[in-house]
Design a protein around this nucleic acid. Sequence first.
DNA 1: TTATTATTTAATAGTATTATTAATCGGATG
DNA 2: CATCCGATTAATAATACTATTAAATAATAA
Lengths: 207, 207
Amino acid sequence: MDIKTEQSTEKIILEVAERLFLEKGFAMTSTTEIAKEVGCNQALVHYYFRTKDNLFNTIFEQKFKDFFQWIFEIKSTGELEFLDKLKLIIESHFDLLMNNPKMPALILNELSRKPEQISMLKDKLEAIPVKLFSELNAELQTAIAQGKVRKIDLIDLIVSMITMNVAIFVMMPVVENILSLDESKKKFMIQHRRAENVDFILKSLRP
Amino acid sequence: MDIKTEQSTEKIILEVAERLFLEKGFAMTSTTEIAKEVGCNQALVHYYFRTKDNLFNTIFEQKFKDFFQWIFEIKSTGELEFLDKLKLIIESHFDLLMNNPKMPALILNELSRKPEQISMLKDKLEAIPVKLFSELNAELQTAIAQGKVRKIDLIDLIVSMITMNVAIFVMMPVVENILSLDESKKKFMIQHRRAENVDFILKSLRP
DNA sequence: TTATTATTTAATAGTATTATTAATCGGATG
DNA sequence: CATCCGATTAATAATACTATTAAATAATAA
């Protein structure tokens, strides 16, 4: 038996469903199609997850949280200068996206078309800013006072960063097609953007 | 008779369909629903447009083109300095998006899930860069040579601009919900972003 | 008015989808 | 071996959707 065949059918369904939902979105992915790709009966998908909604939520609730909680990972950057720390933050955010390149589009789609699901995130989200935001903000204000950074609100800075990092991945499927990029060119372009985003943001912060 | 009732049924169908497609996407909008909102028989939608695909394409082919051809509108900026011209370009691009706030999401969705439609755009697109791109690039290089702008590739600059402008509108439905923004707060935030994007980009270009 | 054409509707074929149910299969346990 | 139970399937109900057709109605021209 194949090593990969060793997984339970339930796990395979989860994996296939995740891939298809990411590729084609919720509405365009049918449980029939999921079953076909898994190689099992369609009823089995419902046997394990009862409803399609359930299956979707099972997969993505955790992912959504992880995605919005990425900011918690920013610890142990210790005694770095604000700008060096910011560079790490931008890069780690970009890397998170790079490891889940299709998540932003899915989140933006599903959340804007099913606003119910947003409430689930709100709770998890409110906890984040208070602590870390104020810490980071203190560091930013210090850097500004020291003349190392131009005057800017932290929220604007964060929005700009998220904006630039997210956008490249949301736009990539279209850019990829229009410019007929192959896999290596695509990778190169993404790496280039990673550096360019850091550069662009840091340059914009010069006093 | 009402002034607005004066329009032909065909036009009403087009308007309703456009609104629904923008709100809910292609897959989640049914011809039945369109007909219901128009207040006519569902068969009538097919009478005028034969297929749902046809209806969608009729509405959006032109819009897609307009969207990508926005760059053509940048004429008559005459003898402005490069940075002033760039400011106008950023703002006009932002305004185009502001007038069609739901288009970016639709374009990104439909194009990434139906790559066939992209070929239609490719042709229209290839004509654009050659002429305007080289002109703009010449101006950028001059500005760099004069020490007014840091060294940067025009393509990176354009990508950064499109990125920042598009992203805010793509992300707005989610942000709006998470932060519970009302209409006026939303408008304020968008206007703020308009200024912030210009500022951010221009600041990043300082030598 | 009558004939002709355009618009609109009712009915329905055909298909796909979600979800449920009952039956079967195969392995574990006694 | 018998049986018990989770895993799986076949069959199908229920629904929704696209598209077509034929009939009805309204508008127009002759």
